[in-house]
Design a protein around this nucleic acid. Structure first.
Lengths: 194, 194
DNA sequence: GCCGTTCTGGACTGGTCTGTCAAGCACCGG
DNA sequence: CCGGTGCTTGACAGACCAGTCCAGAACGGC
């Protein structure tokens, strides 16, 4: 044992995540990262390897956090259907800054999934995580009779994930909360109706 | 008058578009562009100003082309509802390479809409273009009795656009054609039903 | 065929990028 | 309180970046 690190690894990853989330991978320089993380250059390279590794770690953290948040929100309501509704409307309810920041998961897919196999792999596991969460809640909704028994859980889960991603893109494109609510409302009719 | 340009402006924009589309804005170097366009450095700067201007022109061209293609496809079928279905299933029917390349419009929004006002502006006009096209076809479908009269054209149009963007993100994330078809199928139930 | 204009190609510039090196300093165990 | 581990800091290296400059070549008008 010798001198311990002066910073909290978890904390600096979190700060790096915020920068990558805001600006994307390519547009973020190491300088940006170091300033936000509040650590020296060498500390960053010693601790994380390089910019790409740091990004991957930040992305993993983002996925874990936002995945957990999704699952939490889906279980927050008494009614599964209402929980789904709240998740879809959630994007519309965010602050303009939040809507503009968008979703780091979506950004990573669009910017990097084609050229970085590890990002692609994280994208796939993230998809499975979210789909599974939605699938469970749809099943629950079916069990409670809130959606018709003919609804296919798997397909609907996939659809809901795609809808959230569509909402995120629309939000970044500058859609109004009203437009986002419209999208959520129509999406929900495919669950409610038969 | 003097010496005319040796290249076709339209053709080189098209080639630049392909590169930006494939790699994104930041990840594309001027070298990449010049190689693909087959012209000299100075020719590019004289003709287009700088990298950003060239990108904006390429993006505009992409929007015009893909917007026209959307409108065309929406009118290709006898039945408006089937046309919508064909558009949604279209993403699933693309080759793996096409699905991986994704949609330049979506990429521009995710990568640049926050920091470049002109990209944001193009994003908004693109949204209006697509929404209007979808709105028209939904109205047509209503007129023909293919969807219920209670369906709101505007909301549904917004929803359909969001669905296409969701499909594009999912496709880039590596979703199988089957998963994409699932998403399209569920999305369509919100039109067909009741 | 010649002149003026404009396009072309290559060399170049200043700046920024990611990643490394080396020197010194802070901490912990003994 | 001392030795050694390893963290920190600032300077640095090499590559690459967007964009400019310049000399020369190709073309149209006359």
């Amino acid at each position: 044992m010798a001198r311990p690190k002066e910073f909290d690894r978890d904390e600096v990853v979190k700060r790096a995540m915020a920068v990558f989330w805001e600006k994307g991978y390519e547009a973020t320089s190491t300088e940006d990262l170091l300033r936000a993380m509040g650590i020296g250059r060498q500390s960053m390279y010693d601790t994380f390897g390089d910019k790409r590794r740091l990004y991957l770690e930040a992305l993993q953290r983002y996925q874990a956090e936002s995945g957990a948040q999704l699952i939490e929100r889906l279980q927050a309501e008494e009614s599964p259907l209402q929980a789904i509704e709240q998740v879809l409307l959630g994007v519309a309810a965010e602050t303009p800054a939040e809507r503009a920041r968008g979703c780091m998961y979506v950004s990573s897919i669009v910017e990097l999934a084609q050229k970085d196999p590890e990002v692609a792999s994280l994208a796939k596991s993230g998809t499975i995580l979210c789909e599974t969460a939605f699938e469970r809640i749809v099943r629950e909704a079916k069990r409670k009779g809130e959606v018709d028994r003919s609804v296919d859980e798997r397909k609907t889960a996939r659809f809901l994930l795609a809808t959230v991603q569509g909402l995120r893109v629309m939000a970044k494109a500058g859609a109004t909360p009203e437009a986002l609510r419209d999208i959520a409302a129509v999406a929900l009719t495919s669950l409610k109706s038969r």
